[in-house]
Amino acid sequence: MKQWKNDIFLLIILFCGVILLCLLNILNGDVAIGLHDVIKLLSGGAVDNPSWSYIIENRLNRSIVAVFAGGALGVSGLILQVFFRNPLAGPGVLGITSGASLGVAIIVLGGASFGSTWGNIGIVIAGLVGALGVLFLLLIIARFIQNSVTLLVAGIMFGYFTSAFINVLILWADKTETRDYNVWSLGSFEGLSSFEVGLFTSIIGFGFILTFLLIKPLNALVAGNNAAASLGINIKQTRNLIILITGVLASIVTVYCGPVGFIGIAVPQFIRVLVKSKNHAIVLPLVFLGGGFLAILADFTVRMSSNALPLNTVTAIIGAPIIIWVIINLNRKNVSI
């Protein structure tokens, strides 16, 4: 009971932390807009400077995008870590992000623009196909390889392969397309219109709700595939659902925000340290909020540096030490990597 209480307390703390960081992100920036004006604008009123409503809308949108993107990456990392039974699995490491990047690269370096409607639709579909394609290939390989570390290496190889392919595409592309792709690849939670934010949050929200269908299978999979099967879990169905959910979550974030690194691996690990419960009914929402917290913290840091720091630099500074700590911990437990 005490453990349950602690976890709920952590959930509340993280939720409050996310809200607090969102408020800080909205209230701070290069243009000083007073709290009174912010409240006025958020309640639909008008202020003297007409650009301020766009500035506040932009800050609000990027805060929402950061929370949902971080949450989605954290959750897909958690699911993949349980399914592959490897604490270093995640959308970035397993090549899912690279697959989405390849899809985006084919469309963008092929001449489609991020600004046009058809370009955006094409980019979303291509990113999704790329991510799901890599995940699907990994699962085929997983049938022949039992060792999860080897599978991880296969994922890294997919990442290298897609990067090489993207480099070839860059050689053929013109300057503008290459610039567009490079800017996208630096990662950012900025630039989505209100309509896109609505679409983005709806897809992630729907994906997150679907993850609750996985609570029971994930709880069982912690003990391994055979144990889960003996508990009546349909492994094949679970695997398909995992492909679909993690592929959609990771690719939608990658398409709209660029390949954001480290959150997908670091957050589930960090939350596991804080929470003793193995029940994914509590771990999933905590990881979502933890991912959101880390992402909005990273975005706030980016903005406070006057956008001098790229998003991926900040997530790496925060996330890499956590991953190193995980590797050291695994070594201590004599788990081979």
């Binding site: 290069d30 301020w52 500035i55 932009n58 800050r59 300057k175 503008t176 006057s306």
Partner: peptide, 23 residues
């Protein structure tokens, strides 16, 4: 000099001309 987008959005409401060289 590098500015954030929002800083120039603020200035844009005051500047008379906007000269753009872009592709």
């Amino acid at each position: 000099e590098v500015f954030s987008k929002e800083a120039i959005w603020d200035v844009g409401t005051k500047a008379d001309y906007w000269i753009i060289i872009a592709n």
